[in-house]
Every structure is written in structure tokens, then in C-alpha cells.
């Protein structure tokens, strides 16, 4: 939309002011379930960041080089998901080969990145806000790092909370959701600071 968008402010905006998790609430399911363990959170954060950057670039190229010239924009949702699925499949094979331990700890959630709403969300944001190629790389990288940062902060908090005598009815997902609420409350402070579009 706006080529004047400062790349630095876009980068910091996508990490902090419009954090994909805490401001847009995308990618919540794996955020809650994986954050139990710090090591897998780290791995998943890395995986999400990686997938985001790759799919961000790939889908931008597909949209602007194939779909729009051929007038096939109405197919974009299906195509986006297919591209994401392909990238995740490749990533899964790579991780299985490089680090079997990480592969085991990520378990079902690695294939689930395919349907992680954060990924599709970022791809759709890129489309709606009409970012340029470079902007979409910056935005997807920032969003991935923001997601990574948020899940690391939550898993560190959960490590502490797990030892606390939380009321029985709130243990597990309940107290985690409350914690996420507080985190989101903190991030409201950044609202209205930077423009993402």
C-alpha cells in the first residue's frame, strides 16, 4: 500500500505493537499447548519464524507472478494453503533429519503449523495491506520473531506457575489463558504507536 513505510518501524511494529499473538490473537492453539516446555517452545518458535518467512516470500511471489497475471485471484486461499503445506512438509523432513530430538518433542505440532492461523494470517495481511516483496519479508520475519518472543515469555512464566498452588479449577489451560490476558493487556500500551499499513 505505502512504499514510504519505514522498514524499521514495520519490523518493530510487527514484533511489538501488532504482535501476531498478543495483538491479533493468531496462532493461539499451539501457543497454549506447546508453551508447557521451554525447549519445544524454542523449537516451535524457530520453526514458525522460518515457515513464516518462507511462506511469506513464496505466497507473495505466487500471488504477484502467477495468480494476478492469470486473473486467478479467486483461487488465492486454496493456493496459499497448498504453498504453506508444502513448505511445512519440507521443513518437517529437514528437522527429522537434522534434529530427531526436536522432531520428537514437537510431535504433532509440526504438521499442525500448516493450519496454524498465524501463518495464514500473516500471508493474508501481506495480501490485504499490499506489501511489496521486501516489506512482506520484513513483516513475516517480524511476526515470526514476535510469536517466538511471546511463546518464550509464556513458557518461562508457566515454568514458575506450574509450581504455584493455583486453584484446582484453574490449573493448566485456565491459568495460562489468564496469563495470556495479562500479557495482551501489557501490549495494549504500544497501541497507536506505529503504522503497519
Amino acid at each position: 500500500m505505502s512504499p514510504i513505510l519505514n522498514p524499521f518501524s514495520l519490523f518493530f511494529a510487527s514484533i511489538f505493537t501488532s504482535n501476531i499473538l498478543l495483538a491479533n490473537f493468531l496462532g493461539m492453539c499451539s501457543f497454549i499447548s506447546i508453551s508447557k516446555d521451554m525447549k519445544s517452545s524454542n523449537g516451535l518458535g524457530l520453526a514458525v519464524t522460518f515457515v513464516l518467512v518462507i511462506t511469506g516470500m513464496a505466497n507473495w511471489a505466487v500471488l504477484h507472478l502467477i495468480l494476478i497475471p492469470l486473473g486467478l485471484e479467486y483461487l488465492r486461499y486454496i493456493v496459499f494453503i497448498v504453498v504453506i503445506a508444502a513448505v511445512v512438509q519440507i521443513l518437517e523432513m529437514v528437522i527429522d533429519r537434522v534434529s530427531p530430538a526436536l522432531y520428537m518433542s514437537l510431535g504433532i505440532f509440526l504438521p499442525l503449523i500448516t493450519v496454524n492461523c498465524a501463518i495464514l494470517g500473516v500471508v493474508l495481511f501481506i495480501e490485504i495491506r499490499a506489501y511489496t516483496f521486501v516489506q512482506s519479508i520484513i513483516f513475516s520475519l517480524g511476526s515470526g520473531l514476535g510469536w517466538w518472543l511471546a511463546i518464550m515469555a509464556l513458557s518461562a512464566i508457566r515454568k514458575k506457575v506450574d509450581k504455584a498452588p493455583v486453584p484446582a479449577g484453574l490449573q493448566g489451560a485456565g491459568i495460562t489463558l489468564i496469563t495470556i490476558g495479562f500479557m495482551a493487556m501489557a501490549f495494549i500500551g504500544f497501541s497507536g504507536m506505529l503504522q503497519v499499513q
Binding site: A153, G189, S191
Partner: peptide
């Protein structure tokens, strides 16, 4: 930079968020 005139409370809450990390 943000829309709020005062940021101290948000500063504490954000620092709390990242304190464990």
C-alpha cells in the same frame, strides 16, 4: 510514541511479562 499519556504501568506489566524469561 503511543496513544497513552503515561506509560509507567504498561512498562511494569511488560517487564513482568518478560521477567521470567
Amino acid at each position: 510514541f503511543s496513544g497513552f499519556p503515561e506509560g509507567t504501568s504498561f512498562g511494569i506489566l511488560i517487564a513482568n511479562t518478560f521477567a521470567s524469561l
